[in-house]
Amino acid sequence: MQQNKIDHEEEDDEFFETIDKLIAQGINAGDLKKLQDAGIYTCNGLMMNTKKALSNIKGLSDAKVDKICEAAERIVQIGFCTGSELLNRRKAVVRITTGSQALDTLLGGGVETMSITEVFGEFRTGKTQIAHTLCVSTQLPFSMGGGNGKVAYIDTEGTFRPDRLAPIAERFGLDYTAVLDNIVYARAYTHEHQYNLLSGLSGRMAEEPFRLVVIDSIMALFRVDFTGRGELADRQQKLAQMLSKLMKLAEEYNVAVLMTNHVIADPGGGTFVADPKKPAGGHVMAHASTVRLMLRKGKAEQRICKVFDAPNLPDDEAVFQITRGGIADVKD
């Protein structure tokens, strides 16, 4: 068994332009502490907030916010860039193996950092099993298809099982104890608690090399906390804020975000639709997810994954199976 030694890589420096660097630009250390208390630790994260939101931080006036933002703009590039420059930035994207070569090929190499991957399907289609497998594979070195990083797991349904990771760690040749130590776990009970956990996560990501955030599942608490059509607009607004927070974390710290999601009956699916179900969350969820994957059951432990929506992947399918060691290819 190999130990999981995980450190910040030099190639990630651009994602960790901490706000401490603003001191050299003449910003007061006390004001920086106020930003950190509000969950803002990097210059990129600072620029991802509106001035209105920054002004709501206790002790920061509009004048101070303007000065801080101007200083941050001198450190980070927030304007236009050429396509070539963007392509060069995209070289920092890490693709994390799912444990199945067929599924990795479908995804263009694995689950991408700096993006949100949504996996939806009925119960027992393998959503949580994919999440458990990625908790281990993310800790593999880059040379083995991993992300050489830690994992944050937000559990909204009480389905995370640390003992499930033992055979998965054994399969990948990793030390089980080290695997568990590289995972931070939180059980969320309300959608507000879920959001606050994300806000607190930013501080840890600024100090430790995280590569994956899992939310299993994203819609569970929203479906409980908001009921009826009268609360639908409020629910979607709160959901949009949470998804925006996830996207900012993904881009700010170069991490992959994996969300599992429920399916709901689609009365408008039509008579000729064999399986009239759709992912929960509506258009807000559809627009926020970078890659959407639909899972369905196959024979025995086989599962079928279909690319439901993605900006760079063709509509295709892959078959994988659930094994003791996690997600794997189907044996001939």
Score class of each variant (00 low, 15 high):
Gln3Cys: 14
Asn4Thr: 04
His8Trp: 11
Glu9Asn: 11
Asp12Ser: 11
Asp12Trp: 09
Asp13His: 12
Glu17Lys: 09
Glu17Ala: 09
Ile19Tyr: 05
Ile19Trp: 00
Asp20Asn: 08
Leu22His: 04
Ile23Asn: 07
Gln25Pro: 02
Asp31Gly: 07
Lys33Ile: 03
Asp37Ile: 14
Ile40Tyr: 03
Tyr41Thr: 09
Thr42Ala: 04
Gly45Leu: 09
Met47Thr: 06
Met48Trp: 10
Lys52Val: 14
Lys52Arg: 14
Lys52Thr: 14
Ala53Glu: 12
Val65Ser: 05
Ala71Ser: 05
Glu73Ala: 11
Glu73Cys: 14
Gly79Pro: 03
Thr82Asp: 10
Thr82Phe: 05
Glu85Ser: 15
Glu85Lys: 12
Leu86Ile: 06
Leu87Ala: 13
Val93Gly: 08
Arg95Trp: 13
Gly99His: 04
Ala102Asp: 02
Leu103Gln: 05
Leu103Tyr: 06
Leu103Ser: 01
Leu107His: 05
Met114Gln: 10
Met114Leu: 13
Thr117Phe: 04
Glu118Ile: 10
Val119Leu: 14
Phe120Gln: 12
Glu122Tyr: 15
Phe123Ile: 11
Lys127Ala: 04
Thr128Asp: 00
Leu140Gly: 00
Leu140Met: 01
Val151Thr: 06
Glu157Thr: 08
Ala169Met: 00
Glu170Ile: 12
Phe172Glu: 13
Val179Gln: 03
Val179Asn: 00
Asn182Trp: 06
Arg187Gly: 12
Tyr189Thr: 12
Tyr189His: 10
His193Pro: 03
Tyr195Met: 02
Gly200Trp: 10
Arg204Pro: 03
Met205Ser: 10
Ala206Pro: 05
Glu207Cys: 09
Glu208Val: 01
Pro209Ser: 01
Pro209Phe: 06
Val213Phe: 14
Met219Asn: 10
Met219Glu: 09
Ala220Tyr: 07
Gly230Glu: 03
Glu231Leu: 15
Ala233Thr: 08
Arg235Phe: 06
Gln237Cys: 15
Met242His: 01
Lys248Ser: 01
Leu249Phe: 02
Glu252Leu: 03
Glu252Ile: 00
Val257Lys: 00
Val263Gln: 15
Asp266Thr: 07
Asp266His: 07
Asp266Ile: 02
Pro267Trp: 12
Phe272Asn: 13
Val273Phe: 14
Ala274Glu: 15
Ala274Val: 09
Pro279Lys: 11
His287Trp: 09
Ala288Trp: 02
Val291Phe: 04
Arg292Met: 03
Leu295His: 11
Leu295Val: 08
Ala300Thr: 10
Glu301Ala: 15
Cys305Gln: 04
Asn312Ser: 10
Asp315Arg: 13
Ile322Gln: 08
Thr323Gly: 02
Asp332Thr: 05
